[in-house]
Amino acid sequence: MSKMPIRLTVNGVPHEVAVEPRRSLADTLRDECGLTGTHLGCEHGVCGACTVLLEGEPVRACLLFGVQADGRAVRTVEGLAAADGTLDPLQRAFWENHGLQCGFCTPGFLMLATWMLEQPEPVDEARLRHVLSSNLCRCTGYQNILKSVRAAAQALGKWTEVAPVR
């Protein structure tokens, strides 16, 4: 099967790779760009481990083809920490609140929550649960993931106790 050349920008870094059209964006990131932080937990769009941001919006990287990201900007978990490895506020909240155990689902949750916290609207408990119900975690029972994101939202001034009228 012939490959197609594509260019994508991942975490600000341009990549020129050649992929079979059927290769998922997740496999493209992992195998062609060498960015293995994006994990595959189900490859059919349910678990959310592969969640990345495409042009700023969360997507399941297993449900997009790499060729669809041609010319687009992608953000992955590798782009969150500073170049020297310093964790960003969300990552730090996960660390301090034990928001991960085996760590396999963590990149997907981090990217989903990163997007949520970058939205202009504040986050309340209902929205937190609604958005995070997108992804599956098998270790934490979600308690400390929710706690971590809550803590990050508070630290970023994005938390509200009462739902805004939408």
């Binding site: 978990v77 590798e78 969150l80 964790l87 991960l100």
Partner: peptide
């Protein structure tokens, strides 16, 4: 945790 959080696991 730090490595896992950076996607470096």
């Amino acid at each position: 945790d730090p490595a896992l959080l950076r996607g470096e696991g």
